[in-house]
């Protein structure tokens, strides 16, 4: 099997200013499935076609933003090995006991030099996607509720030291660089898209002075028509839209950026292409991000909110 090591982004915990408004947004408008609530009051959701118990955890707090992103790894031996590798690289790691997140095994947490907490875990209870594993139907009632993305796809995080972050993901965790945007002087990167799979990104970063910021959490749709339908559903529910529906030049993904009721940006996304680790990374100049259509290919401009509005 070719896909080993880190498999995919498996969960993210978001801070929301009002829990029930957040639940309404992610469950009823985005159309995720609520799978549990814990004694801390956190609410757990998954996309309909995801098989593990949860991919999004909502925590009520007095500040918006992201608490952590977790990646599922192949098995417990992989978890132990990657923890050793992170320590050998010089990062401090912490073990969070199984069950601290519902239906989730032990997690290894570490902090990136960008200020973000990242977790690795090997176990999360499979609850299935509502279809039989044997001779399944192609879709289910839950796939028709709200925007109904199929999975948590990736996130874009903002913080300092992304050159160092890239090294950790690529040299220790086995990711590879898919695309990047150069600094205005061309000497470094202002943005990087990293993959641990066949996806155009499993996580991405933009260089930003404040640590630990969230730009967006992205959810995958299967067609452009579904992206347009998502736009209709957002409008019907007074969701504030940032950009789109449009296409990113970077990754070629078709997209809408919009905000949840606490101001956390989320994306409904489809498309892109299927990169391999041996591909030469696609490079955008800083001007290419705006006037070159990297951010918004048809509009060819750097929307002001892209570099300035984060939580």
């Amino acid at each position: 099997m070719a896909l080993t090591g880190v498999l995919r982004p498996g969960h993210a915990q978001l801070r929301v200013l009002n829990l029930e408004e957040g639940v309404h947004h992610y469950r009823d408008v985005l159309g995720m499935v609520e799978t549990g609530r814990d004694e801390q009051g956190r609410v757990y959701l998954k996309c309909w076609d995801e098989r593990d118990h949860n991919s999004l955890v909502l925590r009520e707090a007095d500040q918006a933003g992201i608490d952590f992103v977790g990646f599922k790894v192949l098995d417990k031996a992989t978890l132990d090995k990657l923890e050793g590798d992170l320590r050998a690289y010089g990062l401090a790691t912490e073990r969070i006991p199984a069950g601290e997140l519902l239906a989730t095994g032990e997690r290894v947490r570490f902090r990136l030099p960008s200020g973000h907490d990242i977790e690795l875990y090997a176990e999360k209870r499979a609850v299935g996607n509502g279809l039989q594993v044997l001779n399944p139907a192609p879709w289910t009632k839950a796939s028709e509720n709200g925007i109904a993305p199929v999975r948590l796809d990736h996130c874009l995080l903002y913080g300092p030291n992304i050159a160092e972050v890239q090294k950790i993901f690529c040299d220790v965790l086995g990711f590879y660089l898919v695309e990047r945007v150069l600094t205005p002087d061309g000497a470094g990167n202002v943005a990087i898209w990293l993959s641990c799979s066949h996806k155009v990104h499993d996580i991405a970063f933009v260089e930003h002075p404040e640590p630990g910021k969230l730009h967006h959490l992205s959810f995958l749709l299967e067609s452009w028509e579904e992206v347009l339908r998502a736009a209709d559903i957002m409008a019907m529910n007074n969701v504030t839209v940032d950009i789109g529906p449009t296409r990113h030049g970077v990754t070629r993904g078709c997209t809408i950026y919009a905000w949840d009721p606490s101001g956390n940006r989320f994306e409904t996304f489809m498309g892109g292409y299927q990169p391999y680790p041996d591909y030469e990374p696609t490079t955008w100049t800083f001007d290419g991000l705006g006037a070159g259509g990297g951010l918004d290919y048809p509009q060819r401009k750097l929307h002001e909110s892209f570099l300035s509005v984060v939580t």
Binding site: Q63, A64, T240, G263, S308, T311
Partner: peptide, 12 residues
């Protein structure tokens, strides 16, 4: 006029 998240989260 800075129109951000309209959710009280981004502070613009």
């Amino acid at each position: 006029i800075p129109s951000g998240c309209h959710g009280g989260g981004c502070g613009v």
